[in-house]
Design a protein around this nucleic acid. Structure first.
Lengths: 223, 223
DNA sequence: GTTTGTGAACCACTTCACAGCC
DNA sequence: GGCTGTGAAGTGGTTCACAAAC
């Protein structure tokens, strides 16, 4: 009953697809026609076997002795990532980080359209930012109804984050990206990812600490 | 010959230590004296066995039948993360994101002191931001010499990112956090982590796509 | 009775190595 | 000869389940 193209794709692979996607975009821009797993791996900063295995989860899109057709593969990866669909994004919290995200060109460049900015601070409501008016929290439901928010970004202080998550879920948002430095929980069926800036620094601090302590082999690349 | 406390800590554990640290800080604020792995796990959003195994890599700091002493454990975790040392941070690129990071209170709150802001755009140089003057790129080496930059944050466009990484490494910086949406490479012995905002949205888009396509079981929590 | 610390079983991901196809 | 696709082996991480300690 499941439509034929339905394969199970490991999480680790999913998290690399966007990197391949970016590399393929660049190749496409440079009008490169085909690419080997070896060279794609180099661009993506991984090894070739991994690229081949990852891509094999999407299907057999390569040609032995030749490589992968850039245009075709780009299309398949972008379809797999759901980038052929419109994904309206809402940002909740327009402090430092929220405003920076609202103005960040990388989102638009990757096809993510920001449709709503929200903040609980009345002094920020009404303010224009990135071409949108900042609205109060209770407007989330309305915007969700009108524009269909696909992804909600939480950029409020830790103390408000869970409440905002609840509001988003309530409004029907099923994908959430949390920037607040706190663990939040969402019901089954809602995807949640987090970005915690201080945690990244702390992890770097750990390895630096280890190097200073003279424990060797503690070096590169922890992403 | 290795000083006694030297255990090998799995990467996955390292990446969770900051979350335990945050939970412990909160418990400490609330003046909770001891905590069980069960309750700490709940706060950190992981399971109890994982907490116990993770903490056991640091040493046997718990008491059977009782739990972990919050103050003691907090101290051990923060020492392990190297948070007892000063870790001067430099931010390169003060566009939207870089300025937001410069003003982000979460860094200071976690003991990361920003000591330098740099930008290649002459029109930004001299500008004051978060109490610091924005300086040209070639001042990185000077600041590194004077203040000893522990961590460099790259918040420039993709096209400049590798060059900035090279400059930082050259100046002796051994920990780099890259926000530019591009793969950069650093020599052995330099830690590199990345945060890519568009990639996070794309991963969420993947799972949303899957749910819409009616593949069940594709739901919660991908961090 | 409670809760840790940890071998052992399990699972996910990575890497190897090569057969199969161009 | 070159490069993909993939079983098989290897590695690292998670979870189980229970003995040891309080």
């Amino acid at each position: 009953m499941t439509p034929d193209g339905e394969r199970r794709i490991p999480e680790a692979t999913v998290s690399r697809l966007p990197i391949y996607y970016r590399s393929l975009l660049e190749l496409s821009d440079r009008e490169v026609a085909t690419i080997s797993s070896e060279r794609l791996a180099e661009m993506a900063g991984v090894n070739a076997a991994k690229v081949r295995k990852d891509l094999s989860f999407l299907g057999s899109y390569g040609t032995r002795g030749v490589g992968y057709d850039v245009t075709y593969l780009l299309h398949e990866v972008s379809r797999e990532l759901g980038l052929t669909e419109d994904r309206p994004v809402a940002i909740v919290g327009v402090g430092n980080l929220g405003s920076a995200l609202a103005n960040y060109k990388g989102f638009a460049a990757r096809g993510f359209r920001i449709v709503g900015l929200f903040d609980s601070d009345p002094s920020k409501q009404g303010e224009m930012l990135a071409g949108l008016t900042v609205r109060p929290m209770d407007a989330i439901a309305d915007v969700a109804k009108e524009d269909g928010i696909a992804i909600g970004i939480i950029a409020v202080p830790a103390s408000e984050a869970q409440r905002v998550a609840d509001l988003l879920v309530e409004a029907g948002v099923r994908s959430i990206l949390n920037f607040a430095p706190v663990v939040i929980s969402v019901p089954e069926g809602v995807s949640l990812r987090k970005v915690d800036l201080a945690i990244e620094l702390q992890i770097l601090s750990f390895y630096q600490q280890r190097r200073e302590a003279g424990t060797p082999e503690f070096s590169s690349s922890h992403t």
